Amino acid sequence: MPVRHPAPTPPFNIIRMSHIELGVTNLDASRKFYTEILGLIETEQVGNSIYLRGLEERNHHSFVLTKVERPHVIRLGFKVASEADLDSMATYFGTKGMATGWVTQHGQGRSLQMRDPFGMPLEFCYEFAQAERMLQQYGAYRGCHPQRIDHFNCFTPNVQASHDFWALELGFRTTEYTVSEDADPQLWAIWMHRKGNIHDMAFTNGAGPRLHHVALWVPTAMHIIHLCDLMSTTGYLDNMERGPGRHGISNAFFLYVRDPDGHRIEIYTSDYLTVDPDLEPIEWQLRDPQRQTLWGAPAPKSWFEEGSLLAGANVQPPVLQAQPIIAS
């Protein structure tokens, strides 16, 4: 059960996770949920795609909602430090026999696409078209005042293998992790970052690869409380899945909601800084009641079983059968 710490430095520099494209079945319903309820800013609609961003974000988009027949995740996006890093990535993974390809996406510069060993659809880019920063345009604030996209969490059939690739090949650094309570402990979940907070990417044991959730960062816990009041009185009570509460892992205050197609969104704040290169990862036992929620409340069964399909990825059963505490 090795945690690859510290992660090696690859010949390219991934800055952070940066964007996601979600396939949705009803653009009008999705627009209302993401802009009027959550509070994202609509940059524009082009064809069957709506481009959204957080209040402090100056990139053209961090969320893309595209009309599809069946809901799924189309791509998980990451920003690199320079155009040269994209070329270095293409060369690096080409020498390893991994397929890569260049694509053109609306609102961003040339973009490199590839898949991780389990088939997750990944996209890397440097340049985005720029949009107005709305941080001080307080009249535009709605919902929970979402400032920016923060992280992905994905189900994987093999947490150790996913961690090894993302640490050894992509240079993601570990902050916290969960192990099974076996004589030979196995990785059950892991939190990894590039930007200096708890995570840009987390992996959770389960049938996968699938997206567990994408997170929005908000200013305070009270913005999450306000969202609970808003959703419960505007017809979205059943869309609140878990929380509000405070995680043991990450210390973050959270709420998990589901969009009209069932994609899970975490509303997230109050984690901590992890930029020091000698920061030691924190280990948690799988059945520690404070691991999921500092206050001891376990998550519902849906939180461990349901997720969004990823375009082109074949779902595999998990190799580890260890069970967390589940709310009755």
Rank of each mutant, 00 (worst) to 15 (best):
D278L: 13
F63Y: 14
A90M: 06
Y272A: 14
F152W: 04
D229S: 13
G94T: 13
F172H: 04
M1Q: 11
Q285R: 14
T269M: 06
R258Y: 04
S270P: 07
G243D: 01
H199E: 01
T233E: 01
T174M: 06
E306L: 08
A7T: 02
G206Y: 05
C228A: 13
N153I: 08
H60G: 06
S180K: 02
N239H: 08
D85I: 06
A322T: 00
D184F: 14
Q113M: 12
H151L: 08
H247L: 04
Y92H: 10
T100D: 12
G248W: 05
W166A: 06
Q105A: 13
H163V: 13
A202Q: 07
A189E: 00
P2A: 15
L227V: 12
E280K: 15
E306P: 08
H61Y: 15
P244M: 04
I265R: 05
G262R: 00
S308G: 14
T91K: 09
I74Y: 03
F12A: 02
D150F: 13
A189R: 06
A299T: 02
H151D: 01
I326N: 01
L187V: 15
P71K: 03
L40D: 00
G94K: 12
I225L: 12
L273Q: 15
H163R: 11
I37N: 01
D28W: 14
P324N: 05
V24I: 10
I224M: 09
A7Y: 06
P277Q: 10
A322K: 09
E36L: 10
K301I: 12
P157E: 04
T100W: 12
S308E: 03
D116M: 10
L112C: 04
Y256I: 05
L230R: 00
L294A: 12
V214A: 00
E241L: 08
E306A: 02
W217P: 15
K96S: 11
S232P: 03
L294Y: 07
V80K: 02
D164E: 08
A81P: 04
F152Q: 02
L135S: 12
A81H: 03
Y268N: 04
R291C: 10
E44I: 15
G94H: 07
I15L: 08
P219F: 06
R258P: 00
E56K: 07
R258D: 01
P289W: 04
Y141A: 05
Y92F: 11
T156Q: 08
H106W: 01
L255A: 08
A215R: 05
V46S: 09
F33R: 10
T174Q: 07
E132I: 14
W295A: 15
L86C: 08
S62I: 09
A81S: 09
F33S: 00
T233D: 02
V257I: 07
L216W: 01
L38Y: 07
M240Y: 08
V315R: 05
E132M: 14
T174I: 06
E42G: 10
I149F: 15
I198K: 03
E241Y: 08
D261T: 11
H163Q: 10
T95S: 15
Y126T: 13
W217V: 15
F203P: 11
M120Y: 06
R242V: 13
D164Y: 03
G107N: 05
A322G: 10
I20P: 00
I190H: 00
N153M: 12
R173Q: 11
Y141H: 14
V159N: 03
V275Q: 12
R53N: 01
P185V: 02
